[in-house]
Amino acid sequence: MEKLLDIRNLRTYFYTEDGVVPAVDGVSFYIKPGETLGVVGESGCGKSVTSISTLRLVPNPPGKIMEGSEIIFEGTDLLKLSEAEMRKIRGNKISMIFQEPMTSLNPVFRIGDQIAEVLLLHQGLNKAEAREKAIEMLKLVGIPRPEKVVDDYPHSLSGGMRQRVMIAMALACNPRLLIADEPTTALDVTVQAQILDLMNDLKKKVNAAVMLITHNLGVVAESCDRVVVMYAGKVVEEGDVYSIFEDPKHPYTVGLLKSMPSAVGGQDKLDSIPGVVPNPLNLPKGCRFAPRCNKAMDICREKQPGLTVLGEERTVRCFLYNREDGVK
């Protein structure tokens, strides 16, 4: 199937006072129309930076998407578009919801106006039509009494309700791609499941693809078709959700799965991965996971492993699977 989004060799660096942070360092993956891709990895591995790079919203300075990166969406490289052309894509063809529903809505504008804003901007509706559509969207995301809520301010809604509003806003223009950056992390467990179900439901209804960023593998198992595992700014493993869970290749993926409650049935003690994520200002010379890896070999500390293709849509970045293909 044709690719909807194809990220190739994305590098996003931050130029801070302490030095250059290669937050995203040569990331490549793709998303097919209508599918849900999970992006997982520990805190700080560059998931959020990857997502805001896709919309070209990296704060600059200090951030910069480096030369040679490509973000191909529906056949055009977003990095080559003008700012005005890029704005026609944001909130329209690619929209985004964030981790913090409590602070992601503007406190001084009415809910309905915030939803209507994208419709006025991208769909050319008039005010009355936009308001109607906003109410319709609120109904769609399961908000009770949408005719009333449309005139409310965000502070009168709970976190779960606000995230529903964010989803309504994100889906208002029927985007081809929805980027959801930890959409449920800040919510109560019961509400988390509801929001996930809602997203899975609606993406089918509007036939959008989803980039679902999370560090919760349970969420991945439930919602995703394929998975990309990131570590310290690089993709270390990629595959369909079934093979990733059943047959993880990279020691980091294996560790992540082991640290996940109830995934590996019958286990009562969680094994968290020993050690900590490397300081992005001072990355190891070889494989970035080597200092924490229980299978690390000499070569792992010397050279960076390349990507090994294991099968169709299945890749891993580890010397255990290809010792020759090291990149300096």
């Binding site: 704005r87 944001r90 909130g91 329209n92 992601s104 503007n106 804003e117 994208v118 901007l121």
Partner: peptide, 11 residues
């Protein structure tokens, strides 16, 4: 965060 949201809407 809401400023990031506003930018992500294409404004």
């Amino acid at each position: 965060d809401y400023i990031r949201t506003a930018r992500s809407k294409g404004l």
